[in-house]
Nucleic acid binder design. Structure first.
Lengths: 159, 159
DNA sequence: GACGTCGGTCAAGATCGTCCAGCATTTTAC
DNA sequence: GTAAAATGCTGGACGATCTTGACCGACGTC
């Protein structure tokens, strides 16, 4: 589904999405039209979801980040989810198994803002908030290497 | 620190980091050398951390994502942190306040892999794992609008 | 073995980015 | 208050890059 050349292209683009086709071509040993075509297909297939820019939240005044675990009150799940989606300060939200229904990342400019936002869901869900003190690993993609046959084994090959 | 033109450029680039200088220039009403210079400074100042590509983990065979809360055993904090950093399947890790010291995102290709990775830290930390069932909000930047004077008020202006 | 498809190259014309000179505005220094 | 310096912009020229279209070879199918 994804050959070695594709993976090498992705690897380069993860580091710099603005790398020129010519440069990409040179690094993987193809012509630039071929690279262009490969990128087009990677986008088309949804392998590449977007070319984007990573912005330092601090530069925008967001001095605080928090991880918020959210447990909607009975019957409020959909309202809560909609609310979260509509609050732009939520920069990420996952729906997970377990007691906490949602785990979300919140960007705020002050403790006051944090309180203000949590207040907006306080009557529809229980929340536990953890302030982020440091980021040992910032968002990065998983390894691009091809799945080994062993990896493809799937569930519980032995233990 | 960031003027309105910068914010508009960032907004365009968040959607497509490969937008040409000429197109950027046209959209914000500048010449391309000016845009080029602005981007250069945004990078230099660290506002733009990177131009990157967002890849669908599924395309790489990562069929499962999990949020793992990690509480290192006494004295093991640094070893655990190092270990997390070295395991490439961790796609994100935040050090937070509260009982859980770290909250991390894990990309795996199978339940077997999940088990294998958690085993590697099991003797140095307690972990709680929540499998991601859905992603109501995928990574997005916080609002780019300028901080309002009110926002700049900071901590506890009243409540 | 003919044929369609897929993925590649090459070359040319169109487009784009960078460099530079020049200009207006703002800031700094006195 | 004014001169000098710094900043940030523009436009045009030129070299680099991208796109397009014509063509080719490998491969699988009938």
């Amino acid at each position: 589904m994804l050959d070695d050349l594709d993976r090498r292209l992705l690897e380069i683009l993860v580091k710099d999405a603005r790398t020129s086709l010519k440069e990409l071509a040179a690094q993987v040993g193809l012509s630039s039209p071929s690279v262009s075509e490969r990128l087009r297909r990677l986008e088309e297939r949804g392998v590449i979801r977007a070319f984007t820019v990573e912005i330092d939240p601090l530069a925008l005044g967001y001095t605080l980040q928090a991880i918020v675990r959210i447990r909607p009150l009975p019957g409020k799940l959909h309202i809560v989810q909609k609310l979260i989606e509509e609050i732009p300060e939520f920069g990420e939200c996952d729906k997970v198994t377990g007691d906490d229904c949602f785990v979300a990342r919140l960007f705020v400019r002050s403790i006051g803002d944090l309180d203000g936002i949590l207040d907006r869901i306080a009557d529809k869900a229980e929340t536990s908030t953890a302030i982020i003190k440091a980021q040992p690993i910032r968002r990065r993609p998983p390894p691009l290497a091809a799945a080994s046959p062993r990896d493809r084994a799937g569930v519980l090959p032995a233990s």
